[in-house]
C-alpha cells in the first residue's frame, strides 16, 4: 500500500448477520474529502461501521495506514435526556480544543447537553470530530437536522481541512456531496 493512502477497501462486502452492501472498492488519501452517495438503505452507514469494527466484513480486504487515527460522527446521535456534560467537555473528549470551535457554536460550549436541541447536539459532535486530531474523519449524514448557518459552519470546516487529514463523508444529499467532495462514489448503484 502506498504511504499516501490512509485507508483502502478492496471488494469489501459488509453487513451484520448477513451481507447488506458491497463489494465496495475505494481508497482515501490525505487532503481528500471522499463522498459516499446513494439512496437511503443502500448500506452507506454500514460501510463506515465496517471501518470502525461495528459491522462485519464478509469478504474483501481493508488496509489501514499504520498510524491511522479515526473519528466517527454517528448519524442520529442519541441526546441524553439529563446529563450535565457541557458542550466544551464533549469537544475535549476527542482531543479537540473548544477554543477552535466556530463562533456559531461557542455559546453552546457552556451549555449542558440536555439543554441543546437535537440539531445543536449533532452539530457539536460533528464539529468535535472535525476539530479532533484524528487523521480520518468518518461523517454519517452530517447535514441532517442542521439549519442554514450550521450548514455554513460545517462547510467552512470542511474547506479548511488540514492537508494531512481526510474525510469520508456519507450523505444522501447529492448537492452537498458535489459541493464539498474531491471524489464521489455511488453506493448501491
Amino acid at each position: 500500500m502506498s504511504k499516501e493512502v490512509l485507508l483502502k477497501l478492496e471488494g469489501v462486502v459488509a453487513g451484520y448477520t448477513r451481507p447488506v452492501v458491497g463489494p465496495v472498492t475505494f481508497s482515501v488519501k490525505p487532503g481528500e474529502v471522499l463522498g459516499l452517495g446513494g439512496p437511503n438503505g443502500s448500506g452507506k452507514s454500514t460501510i463506515l461501521r465496517s471501518i470502525t469494527g461495528m459491522s462485519r466484513v464478509f469478504s474483501g480486504s481493508m488496509h489501514r495506514a499504520p498510524d491511522l487515527t479515526l473519528c466517527h460522527q454517528w448519524q442520529r446521535p442519541e441526546l441524553p435526556p439529563e446529563l450535565a456534560l457541557l458542550g466544551s467537555e464533549l469537544y475535549s473528549l476527542l482531543g479537540a480544543d473548544p477554543k477552535d470551535a466556530p463562533a456559531l457554536i461557542r455559546p453552546l460550549m457552556t451549555q449542558p447537553l440536555y439543554r441543546l436541541s437535537g440539531g445543536q447536539f449533532q452539530l457539536i459532535q460533528t464539529l468535535a470530530c472535525l476539530c479532533s486530531p484524528a487523521r480520518l474523519v468518518l461523517m454519517d449524514e452530517p447535514t441532517n437536522n442542521l439549519d442554514g448557518r450550521s450548514l455554513d459552519a460545517l462547510s467552512a470546516m470542511l474547506h479548511q481541512l488540514d492537508p494531512s487529514r481526510a474525510v469520508l463523508l456519507v450523505s444522501h444529499e447529492i448537492s452537498f456531496l458535489e459541493r464539498h467532495c474531491t471524489n464521489l462514489i455511488e453506493v448501491g448503484a
Binding site: T52, G53, M54, L70, H72, L90, L93, Q125
Partner: peptide, 17 residues
C-alpha cells in the same frame, strides 16, 4: 471518566483506534 464518556458518545471510538 473520559473513557466512559467517550464510549457513551462515540461508541466505536476506542475500537476504531
Amino acid at each position: 471518566s473520559p473513557r466512559l464518556l467517550t464510549a457513551r458518545f462515540f461508541p466505536d471510538y476506542h475500537g476504531a483506534n
